[in-house]
Simulated scan of single mutants.
Amino acid sequence: METILKITNLNKIFNKHLHAVKNVSFEIKKGNVYGILGPNGSGKSTTLGIVLNVVNKTSGDFEWFGGKVATHDALKKVGAIIERPNFYPYMTAKENLELVCKIKGTPFSKVDEKLELVGLLERKNDKFKTYSLGMKQRLAIASALLNDPEILILDEPTNGLDPQGIRQIRDIIKVIASQGTTILLASHLLDEVEKVCSHVVVLRKGEMLYQGSVHDMIENNSFFELKSDNKEQLKLALQNHPSIEKIEEEEGKVLVYLKQDIAAKELNSYLFEQKIVLEHLVKRKNSLEEQFLELTKN
Rank of each mutant, 00 (worst) to 15 (best):
P157Y: 02
V214N: 05
L121H: 08
D216W: 02
F65E: 14
H241T: 06
T130N: 09
M135V: 00
S187I: 09
S269I: 05
S243W: 01
N221S: 05
Y88V: 06
F223K: 04
Q164H: 05
I176M: 10
L236A: 03
L271V: 03
I7N: 07
V33M: 09
E219F: 11
K297M: 01
M135A: 03
P85L: 10
D73L: 14
I172C: 13
E2V: 10
S178K: 07
E251M: 09
E249N: 15
K68Q: 15
S59L: 01
Q164C: 00
G206H: 00
L295K: 11
T182R: 07
L5W: 13
G66C: 04
K227I: 10
N159L: 13
Y90C: 00
N15S: 15
H215M: 05
L271I: 06
T130V: 03
A70E: 15
N23Y: 01
L10A: 09
D73S: 13
S42N: 07
E27N: 15
L121G: 02
E156K: 03
V51D: 03
S222T: 09
P157L: 07
K136V: 00
L190Q: 08
M1I: 12
N32L: 12
P39I: 07
L5R: 10
G252T: 14
G105V: 07
K253Q: 13
S222Q: 11
G105D: 14
Q137W: 00
G79K: 06
N147T: 01
L293A: 07
N125C: 00
E279C: 11
E122K: 11
N96W: 07
E250L: 13
L255D: 04
V118I: 09
G67K: 14
L115E: 05
Y270G: 02
L154H: 05
E156R: 01
F87A: 04
K30C: 02
K205N: 13
V100F: 13
I141D: 13
L190D: 09
L145E: 04
P242K: 03
I262T: 11
N220I: 05
E95M: 02
T47V: 15
